[in-house]
Amino acid sequence: MYQVGCVTAPLCGTMHLMDTTEPLATLVPAAREGDQHAWDAIVDRFLPLVGSVIRQHRLSEADGDDVSQTVWLRLVEHLGALREPDALPGWIRTTTRNECLRVINARGRMRPVDPQSEVGLDAVVDDIAHEDLLAAERRQVLRDALLELPAARRDLLLLLLDDPPVPYEEISARLGIPIGSIGPTRARALDQLRKITALRGIGPDPVGGGN
């Protein structure tokens, strides 16, 4: 099972579920006014996105902890300036990436590449066929998009992907939705997923997509 961050309540127990599906247009102003529950709902929703960006940068666990904490502290101070709640996922993605780069650079983790040496970056790239890199990037984009879905929709897709398959009765019970709405919700979730990935401009040409 793909862990999406709701560790204390696997697949986000009912209370989390309700909170994290609140639209950002509601959560962000509430957090700005000091509502800790709204803040926690934002955290639950986007912690997986922060973790995903950190993982892409291959930071150590401790550095990842530092970056994650800095991103959330920055968001606390940024809440007042965030006029467009829908811009939040992009802000979190950019801020996390920047903090990862700062940590990598500040600690000199990246070894200089000797231009004289044959064993440089090219050697790594040669190991993996170009097509594989594109496919890997495409899978990453898809995971990132999944993390931007409201938790209820994300959890439904993940349950539907589970192997062996989870019976609809159990999905219905775990998510607290009628069996009859599983199909339509799946369709809406996939539509939303397509829009998120399309917005990032990644489709026919995954490299250089604007994320």
Binding site: Q3, G5, V7, T8, Q36, W39, D40, V43, D44, L47, P48, V50, G51, E61, G64, D65, S68, Q69, W72
Partner: peptide
């Protein structure tokens, strides 16, 4: 790791 980061974020 996820839980530790979630608590710090909260």
């Amino acid at each position: 790791v996820t839980e530790r980061r979630r608590l710090a974020a909260s």
